[in-house]
């Protein structure tokens, strides 16, 4: 089985994703977007970076590139898909997940470690954790503020599709612990099916034991915990 890590022009966490997945024994390869999705992929990762230089809006141009038609079809067929950071922006822009990620409340780029509270531990991406667990994962984004209509937000919560919320070290979801002004401190969500997930924090940066901790491993292992 192979995970396709889609490389758009301007992606810059594609190599990191492959390296982190390899560390977990998960076979992955970078796929140049113009080459199309290989047959027989067992998962798809949309990595972080600045696809198309974030021109227009973060993720907007990549979301409309031809490979995304194949990606959406595969995701609809149940192929697991994880969008991280710019990949999360692409996921939202392409309609795979609800809401948008837009300019941070600070209006600045922020690279720092944050705490996340696991909201739903019954999904492939969170099965390694317990509900209420607090994990430490880095963020690195200028456009990570999650915005969504009230109606859709209520639906997300009702359907238990919020994966993570920003919190403090003790797990309290507070304004102070919200790094970018995201609605409801939301850091990551599921799409219409539980096999599709997007999040702004970088699990691949919290996977290798020699840098940045290992709290993100459970998220990447989601690729292997789907039947």
């Amino acid at each position: 089985m192979t995970i396709a890590v889609i490389q758009f022009g301007g992606s810059n966490c594609d190599r990191d994703a492959v390296r982190a997945l390899a560390h977990l024994g998960i076979d992955a390869e970078r796929v140049w977007h113009e080459d199309g999705l290989p047959e027989e992929v067992s998962g798809i990762m949309l990595p972080g970076g600045f696809s198309y230089g974030d021109y227009l809006r973060a993720g907007a141009m990549a979301a409309r590139s031809p490979i995304m038609n194949e990606v959406r079809e595969a995701a609809d067929d149940g192929v697991p898909l994880l969008g991280v950071c710019n990949g999360a922006q692409v996921g939202c822009e392409s309609g795979l997940t609800d809401g948008v990620f837009t300019t941070n409340e600070s209006a600045r780029f922020q690279c720092e470690h944050v705490f996340l509270r696991v909201e739903n531990a019954e999904t492939p991406w969170t099965r390694a954790y317990d509900e209420g667990d607090v994990i430490e994962i880095p963020i690195a984004h200028g456009e990570g503020r999650f915005e969504i209509t009230d109606e859709k937000y209520d639906a997300l919560v009702d359907d238990d599709r919020v994966l993570f919320r920003y919190c403090d070290a003790e797990g309290n979801v507070t304004d102070d612990a919200n790094p970018n002004g995201s609605t409801g401190n939301v850091a990551g969500i599921l799409g219409a099916r539980e096999t599709v997930a997007v999040l702004m924090p970088h699990p691949e940066r919290a996977t290798l034991p020699d840098v940045g901790g290992t709290d993100g491993q459970g998220i990447l292992r989601g690729f292997t915990s789907i039947e």
Binding site: R15, R108, F109, Q110, E204, R205, V211
Partner: peptide
Amino acid sequence: VYRQYDHEVGIRTS
């Protein structure tokens, strides 16, 4: 200053 710089991309920054 350095919070505005991505200092972890590349996953080599220990």
